[in-house]
Write a protein that binds this DNA or RNA. Structure first.
Length: 610
DNA sequence: TTAGGGTTAG
């Protein structure tokens, strides 16, 4: 039941009570500085106004000093300080102030105080603190305030393990307002349940609540989260009808929705039509187009620069990811330079993106340097570094890092376990991988899913244990999906296990009938078995889907220039000879590494004019 | 004199 935030390690449930009893040491120090202010008797409205003003400008020390000098602090002055700390992101100080206030005999919290401190609980993701404040809200009779109830819901949405507590509060509100509804929609949506979010939105419409810009943007986000262009377009029409089309956050949500629904032309058209754009609009385009292809992402980044929009951490994270996808090292280094130049290198998600970028550009040493220099790391940091090690064939380093991560107190999730298993798989560490699969998935309470099983099938299959991989699939507690069968098919292809390969290919085609690559492997299996009738049938089926298959594009970076091409391209560039020289060098490296090309995947006998 | 929910980064 108790959920305590990592952000609040110093405020465990055992030491919260002393805080409430006014034991915050630094705040209790007697004020030894010379006072600059004189105060009339009674509550000082002027001083409180000044505190608010200081806090708004980020001058928290000055605000606190002034607060210390007020001889008779009323609830408004206390609340102004609590709120000031929360709004500035100093939530533990806000919590400390609340504790001191509760410890003073002459003041009680009101609805303003409770809603302000609940916001701090939310930001700290401290469920225990929030529950305690909920109790105090009931004790002081402020739980009927719509502000308090909405703040309680918001806290439970963020800090609770489920939406249950938020739902209880929501149902208990007799007269819900637009904030109550919006908080519920946002809660479901941010937890990945966009469908329920849209259900609440529908209920809100039925209750004839007057929608504002917040409600529109979160409902669009709900559509985006489930990839529903159908509902997204309906809400877009309603947005226009209600006259909210020029609202920038709503416009940004629409751009994001179209991008996430793979409707890039609609996203671009709407982006062009937007009367007003902000940095988030550009970031949404760069990130949204980046999901489909890194080139357009970089193109928007350049266009943004030419329009004198200053990039931020979000921008650079997407741009670094685009460089990673292109494996464009020199471009990535320039981006890294720009990040350092702007002093953004301490941003954790951005540093994570750089770790990933260097790893994907083949520079695992630089990934590790960034990892080592990070003061704060999160689960994604460790995952990125482990994935980097895995893709470079450093399985043992990935295992060592995983153990280090556990020792540092970070709990693994499914994605990091997949990274670990994949690293073992690519380094041939079958026993080690199986050990983690069998023990850690249980010990760490990470739920096994299709993708984790797919990694273990891959682990066994790559090592030639194809029958064992198939046995594992048969024992799976759920129906295997196309990814699991694809892992088995890959193993069958590599180790020439024809009968299981045919089975895997059939299963994949049952689930995804238009997989041209699966048709190709299946036809090659039939050819290897001498079943020419089946071979011909599959090749005939394949013709239908192959023409729709997007050509595999390759790219190569030579002297700061990225060249992109597909098979049969006629490339014309002044320094084209440099590309061919680089490719010849690559072929030599491959020969040195005794690389044997996999020609099974080539269409030797399909070139019949179709 | 003190309080609210929304859009971008694996």
């Amino acid at each position: 039941m108790i959920k305590t935030s990592r952000k609040l390690l110093a405020t465990s449930p055992t030491n919260i009570i002393p805080l409430i009893k006014n034991l915050s040491p630094w705040a209790q120090k007697p004020n030894t500085q010379t006072s600059l202010h004189t105060f009339p008797k009674g509550p000082s409205i002027l001083a409180t106004n000044l505190i608010v003003s200081y806090c708004t400008k980020g001058l928290l020390k000055e605000a606190h000093q002034l607060f210390d000098e007020i001889p008779e602090r009323d609830v408004v002055a206390w609340t102004a300080m609590i709120s000031g700390y929360t709004s500035s992101g100093h939530c533990s100080q806000s919590w400390d102030m609340f504790g001191m206030m509760m410890g003073s005999d002459d003041v009680s919290p009101n609805s303003f105080t409770v809603s302000s401190v609940l916001k701090a609980c939310k930001e700290m993701e401290c469920y225990y603190c929030g529950v305690m404040v909920h109790g105090l809200a009931i004790k002081y009779g402020v739980d009927g305030s719509i502000y308090v109830d909405n703040a309680l819901m918001d806290m439970y949405v963020t800090c609770g393990d489920t939406m249950d507590d938020a739902c209880v509060v929501f149902k208990g509100i007799r007269v819900k307002n637009v904030v109550s509804w919006t908080t519920m929609i946002a809660g479901y949506t941010h937890r990945g349940d966009g469908f329920r979010g849209l259900h609440v939105f529908r209920d809100m419409l039925q209750e004839e609540v007057e929608l504002n810009s917040f409600s529109w943007s979160i409902s669009i986000r709900a559509c985006a989260s489930i990839g529903s262009k159908f509902y997204g377009e309906q809400i877009h029409s309603a947005v226009v009808k209600h006259g909210f089309e020029t609202n920038v956050p709503i416009g940004n949500s629409l751009v994001d929705m179209y991008c996430r629904c793979n409707s890039l032309s609609e996203a671009f058209n709407f982006f062009c039509e937007m009367v007003e754009k902000n940095l988030i609009t550009w970031n949404t385009m760069i990130a949204g187009f980046g999901r489909s292809g890194p080139h357009s992402s970089l193109k928007f980044f350049c266009q943004m620069g030419s329009e004198n929009i200053i990039p931020n951490c979000f921008t650079f994270t997407s741009v670094a990811a685009a460089c990673a996808d292109l494996a464009a090292l020199s471009c990535g280094k320039q981006v890294h330079g720009a990040i350092v130049h702007r002093g953004l290198e301490r941003n954790v998600p951005l540093a994570n993106a750089l770790i990933d970028m260097y790893a994907k550009c083949g520079n695992i040493g630089d990934s590790r340097t960034i990892f080592n220099e990070m003061v704060v790391r999160n689960l994604i940091t460790w995952t990125s570094m482990m994935n980097g090690y895995g893709s470079h064939g450093y399985g043992r380093e990935a295992i060592g890092l995983f153990n280090e991560m556990l020792d540092s107190g970070i709990k693994p999730d499914q994605i990091v376990l997949m990274g670990l298993l994949s690293a073992c798989s690519h380094s041939g560490l079958v026993e080690e991988g199986l050990k983690y699969f069998n023990s850690l998935c249980i010990d760490t309470h990470v739920a096994l899913n299709q993708e984790i099983y797919g990694c273990v099938v891959d682990l066994l299959g790559r090592a030639g244990k194809v029958s064992e991989a198939y046995e594992l699939i048969e024992k799976m507690p759920f129906e295997p999906d196309e990814f699991v069968w694809s892992a088995l098919l890959g193993a069958c292809k590599a180790h020439k296990v024809l009968y299981l390969g045919r089975l895997a290919a059939d299963k994949i085609l049952d689930l995804k009938p238009n997989r041209a690559d699966t048709f190709l492997v299946l036809s090659n299996i039939y050819a290897a078995e001498g079943k020419w009738g089946d071979f011909a049938k599959v090749r005939k089926l394949m013709r239908g889907v192959w023409s729709k298959k997007e050509a595999g594009r390759s790219w190569i970076e030579v002297k700061n220039q990225v060249y992109s091409f597909v098979v049969g391209d006629n490339m014309y560039a002044a320094d084209m000879h440099l590309v061919y020289e680089e490719l010849e060098l690559l072929v030599l490296h491959m020969k040195d590494a005794v690389y044997v090309p996999d020609t099974d995947s080539l269409l030797h006998d399909f070139e019949d004019g179709t």
